[in-house]
Design a protein around this nucleic acid. Structure first.
Lengths: 147, 147
DNA sequence: GCTACATCCTCTAGCGACTAGAGGAGCAAG
DNA sequence: CTTGCTCCTCTAGTCGCTAGAGGATGTAGC
């Protein structure tokens, strides 16, 4: 039962980088940890599980606030899971929106690239299409950020 | 020939917000502008075209550095357009990667949600799958940010 | 001329989720 | 006892804006 490992080992075990682990502690995603006499952090099995949970949730693109809520739910298993479900659904909706938006971007980019005749900039379709919004099928998709 | 408009009118015409326009000037995407006696910026037709170019490029998710390069190319139409093409291709590749990654996320989220039986958190699949990375088909997709 | 009011100016700080680096302490092996 | 690794805290930087303070300018109506 390898208990109470260092932050470096926790990083290797969880796949979260050392500075990021410290950052998670700072913003309260990880609880304040046990320390050695020499002031080094010690991670037990629960802490490692929590880290992995956070990592996985981040990979799925949940925001830190959402993860905070999910962790609180996990710590209280008797609660109904409507909130967790809601958070996941909201994330799914966001992901679908992003996919739709990116698919539109892909089409537009492909069009630019295939129309470019690889000559001079003066007649380059890439530049022309960027210059004339009217030429383009893409109309302000909005939200073009985050995962 | 509505020449030399105010920043507010430039914002309305281009769809870029006033503070964002000033920000573009600050980071050198827009050149230092003509000013009135009262120190207000004046935008001519060229400036408005440049703004629209920037806006469109940002909508397509090009980074500011890439836009800087594209603008420099546009200003020098005799150049071969290989660089523009390359930038567009790089962006397309990135968009494709993001779509692939988000599609994997979507599947995973859908699985979580459909398996959730809407009972207590203790037996909630959403929480369980987040807790056990082993249960999941999704393996560190990497780049989960930006457009 | 005078008063509202909109629009403009500059400057600084904040967002989210980290990442990088300075400057120093602890600890095991040779 | 020194080398070299890991760890500590703290601050600042990343990207592309966005928000707000605090003040100047411009315009329309009276």
């Amino acid at each position: 039962m390898s208990r109470d490992v260092s932050i470096g080992e926790a990083a290797r075990a969880s796949g979260v980088k050392v500075p990021t682990i410290r950052f998670y502690e700072q913003i309260g995603l990880m609880p304040p940890l046990q320390r050695t006499e020499g002031n080094r952090r010690l991670y037990g099995a629960d802490d490692l599980r929590r880290l992995s949970f956070i990592r996985h949730a981040r990979e799925l693109g949940f925001e830190v606030d959402a993860i905070r809520t999910l962790l609180a739910l996990q710590d209280d298993p008797g609660q109904p899971c409507g909130t967790a479900d809601e958070i996941a659904r909201a994330r799914l909706a966001e992901v679908k929106r992003r996919i739709a938006s990116l698919t539109a971007l892909r089409k537009e980019l492909e069009r630019m690239i295939t129309e470019c005749s690889h000559g001079k900039v003066g007649e380059c379709r890439v530049i022309e299409i960027l210059a004339d919004h009217g030429e383009c099928r893409h109309h302000h998709a909005g939200a073009t950020r985050t995962a």
